[in-house]
Nucleic acid binder design. Structure first.
Ligand SMILES: NC(=O)c1ccc[n+]([C@@H]2O[C@H](COP(=O)([O-])OP(=O)(O)OC[C@H]3O[C@@H](n4cnc5c(N)ncnc54)[C@H](O)[C@@H]3O)[C@@H](O)[C@H]2O)c1
Ligand SMILES: NC(=O)c1ccc[n+]([C@@H]2O[C@H](COP(=O)([O-])OP(=O)(O)OC[C@H]3O[C@@H](n4cnc5c(N)ncnc54)[C@H](O)[C@@H]3O)[C@@H](O)[C@H]2O)c1
Lengths: 220, 220
DNA sequence: ATCTTTTTGTGATAAAAATCACATTAAAAT
DNA sequence: ATTTTAATGTGATTTTTATCACAAAAAGAT
């Protein structure tokens, strides 16, 4: 491994793949697989083996030459890296179609993350408890979030109220946001926001399909 | 613009931004904005103006020096590029929490895409009609999809049935898939699959947050 | 008309990411 | 023990993407 100083930097592209690796390795560990090589992880994740080895290398020498990786050990490392050991409490804003689905499922399979409270503008919904998750009115957002010390939120409000909802979240101390409304909103640089853009994904799929992939679009 | 030959290639990174541009410009057009410059689009989309101009340049000389872009014209161009003029019929597999939410909303805001049929393993659900969308049994998949000539699908089945569901879709002639189960599945190279990974998004957000962004992670 | 201002489109460059390819190291076989 | 085999970790390179910075072109002002 490189010196601490140099290895502080994890490329953005690598960071985005970490959950894929974690999930893949976790599944292997749960299946009882003890040993794996980059080539096999590649088949499972569709990520080239050289990329996998390079990515892993940012976190130390996780494997052994001529052997591969000890699954349990690598899972442990990724567990640590991704904070899977810590419970992530999540707030949800906008209890509509998607919001209700997210609450109902509530990251069932992921034992470390959980929607613990939700906020809804419509006063008919607020006050209720859905699948154990209390729905508050938006007026209560700041106090609830600071009391419960929550910093991660999902927004599932309609596009036109997206900025409004995100402003309230930021004002309530949220620093990480997942927004289901794809229109870009403005946030302070201290806040990290990511977008789920279903319409965009479909458009991109169809765009590529229309071009029949290889000949027109340069790279896979 | 470059010669036809050279300009066949649209970088992958550009393609992913096209829906963002389209949405942004469409909104402007709908608001009555007639003229826009790359700097303003940058403020609205958070994409650097140089990147925007470079991206646009792949589709011709869309703007005018010292003036900017005619909003209506550029919307028209993107409209064409993204096939927004064509109706995209979408099949959905797995009518559970998420599946039902997607059907209920059914891309309300996007007049060119629509879930027109759904498939569910649970025989209690199949046979019903939800928000106008007929729910079929999985046994009917191949015949319905070929009859309706559908090539785009969304899978919202649990992870452990993901490969099974995708296999059926591929076998039924689907070439573009959006999968809500994040575990990577194997598809023929003729099929394009994209993943929505909510858990992964949250993990990545928290990963970055833990590192407090700038000092540890190299680039924004 | 001419001049000034503005903003594009794009060469050139830099930065980031992916990939190659192999020396090195450890495992497994003999 | 020694040899053979296997797979890592990483320099080196290539490819892709982002950004700089400005000449050229058009708009608007005078
Ligand atoms: N459901 C889909 O299939 C789908 C597809 C593409 C995009 N999206 C996006 O997902 C988001 C949610 O979709 P949906 O179908 O769940 O919408 P929805 O209308 O069913 O639910 C939105 C909820 O947010 C509430 N709300 C509005 N403003 C609020 C505020 N400021 N604070 C708190 N709550 C507020 C509304 O009262 C409503 O209950 C939308 O932005 C939509 O663009 C959804
Ligand atoms: N809802 C969330 O908050 C959330 C969060 C993260 C990930 N996800 C992912 O989204 C997916 C769906 O989640 P959900 O909460 O809607 O699950 P769900 O269990 O409510 O619904 C899944 C549905 O798929 C059906 N099904 C199973 N196998 C099938 C098959 N082969 N063909 C057709 N139908 C089949 C089931 O009968 C069920 O109705 C899961 O893969 C999950 O990992 C959901």
């Amino acid at each position: 491994m490189k010196s601490e100083q140099e290895e502080q930097y994890v490329p953005k592209a690598t960071a985005k793949r970490l959950p894929v690796y974690y999930r893949c390795l976790k599944k292997l560990a749960d299946t009882g697989v003890k040993r794996i090589k980059s080539q096999e992880i590649s088949e499972l994740t569709q990520i080239p083996s050289a990329t996998i080895r390079r990515d892993f290398s940012h976190f130390g020498e996780l494997g052994r030459s001529g052997y591969g990786y000890e699954v349990d050990y690598v899972v442990e490392v990724f567990h640590e890296i991704l904070n899977v050991n810590k419970i992530i409490n999540i707030a949800l804003v906008g209890v509509g179609n998607i919001g209700k689905a997210l609450i109902a499922n509530n990251f069932r399979r992921d034992d470390n993350m959980k929607i613990t409270c939700a906020f809804e503008k419509n006063e008919e919904e607020s006050g209720k408890i859905l699948s154990g998750v209390p729905i508050y009115s938006v007026a209560q957002m700041k106090s609830v979030l600071s009391r419960e010390n929550i910093h991660v939120a999902i927004s599932t409000v309609p596009s036109e109220h997206s900025q409004e909802s995100i402003n309230m979240l930021v004002d309530s101390g949220i620093t990480s946001i997942l927004n289901f409304a794809p229109g870009r909103v403005v946030v302070p640089s201290t806040v990290d926001i990511r977008y789920i853009d279903l319409t965009g994904e479909i458009l991109t799929l169809v765009y590529y399909d229309g071009k029949l992939l290889p000949p027109i679009i340069k790279n896979k």
